[in-house]
């Protein structure tokens, strides 16, 4: 039982990381029906930005005096960085193709993904980059299992971001405009929503969430790598599809399910094949219920 609860905590943490990435996929897909292959790279770029900023602040000595302020600054700046990066990528590689065939945009996205990944490799090197280990390694003992401080931080920040995003999308004017654009772009434009701006902002928000996830992963596992975006990117996409693509709550739910699948299959079935289970879930969901768990009705062209 304790082992199970321990794994459950691990699964929730991991699922939160996936959920944050999956939101970017689902929002972008919901609004322009594009699988943004470069999204995993925003996640990786966020992880790198985090390590760069924290390492700098560490060397200046700020980390020892004000660790929480430093962490907050690193999060805000890395998220802003990825938002700017994503808006530029959208403007260069996706916007001119708005009217082109879907295949063209998908290939352009694939090209951008390869470009960004190699850009990261060339500027940051091929080896792992280690996060400064300033945050306490301790854990809270709860009955028979532990919650590490890092897990508390990760769960807290993930929860905060998810609640914030929900409020943004369902309570604010901007969120209303986003939902309107996703529903019917032409109609939204007619009632005065600037759809290009909304699309750009959607990319920015998605990338910022991915960046936050990147830092959390970096803190949690201790290091980042230039190609870290690829596999989590696919799994997060699987999560988005599982929850029902286009649905925000669905992406959160899907992320948690994928995280749990991975942790529990590694714990109880086989560690080597844990990635296979995530893909099998993806394929099974697409085959048996293409709309996902919380997906709305989907028309023929989308599936």
């Amino acid at each position: 039982m304790d082992f199970f609860l321990q794994q459950l905590i691990n699964a929730l943490t991991l699922g939160g990381f996936y959920a944050l990435i999956a939101l970017g996929y689902t929002m972008v897909y919901g609004i322009i029906q594009l699988i943004n292959f470069a999204h995993g790279e925003f996640f990786a770029a966020g992880g790198y930005m985090g390590v760069i900023l924290l390492a700098w602040m560490n060397s200046q000595g700020y980390m020892q005096t004000h660790p929480w302020i430093c962490l907050t600054i690193a999060f805000v700046l890395a998220m802003a960085y990825c938002a700017i990066l994503a808006m530029g990528v959208e403007k260069i590689a996706y916007k001119p193709l708005r009217k082109a065939s879907k295949l063209s945009v998908l290939l352009s996205a694939l090209g951008m993904s390869i470009f960004l990944q190699n850009g990261l490799m060339l500027t940051q090197g091929v080896y792992d980059k280690t996060y400064p280990g300033v945050f306490a390694k301790g854990a809270v003992q709860m009955g028979g299992f532990n919650i590490t401080y890092l897990q508390i931080i990760a769960l807290g920040i993930t929860g905060l971001l998810l609640v914030g995003l929900n409020r943004l999308v369902y309570k604010s004017r901007l969120g209303k405009a986003m939902r309107a654009t996703a529903q019917d772009r032409v109609m939204a434009t007619l009632v005065g929503v600037s759809s290009d701006r909304i699309i750009s902002l959607t990319f920015a928000i998605g990338a910022a969430l991915a960046a936050a996830s990147g830092i959390l992963v970096g803190l949690y596992y201790g290091s980042v790598r230039y190609d870290m975006g690829f596999v989590p990117g696919i799994k997060a996409f699987a999560a988005a599809v599982l929850g029902g693509i286009g649905s925000i709550t669905g992406a959160m739910l899907g992320g948690l399910i994928i995280g749990m699948t991975e942790i529990f299959s590694a714990a109880y079935i086989s560690g080597e094949y844990k990635d296979v289970f995530a893909f099998i879930i993806l394929i099974a969901v697409l085959y048996f219920m293409p709309t996902g768990l919380l997906g709305e009705n989907i028309n023929d062209t989308r599936v």
Partner: peptide
Amino acid sequence: LVFGAAMALMM
């Protein structure tokens, strides 16, 4: 790097 950029530019 060039390969990725070429792919996007080609599109």
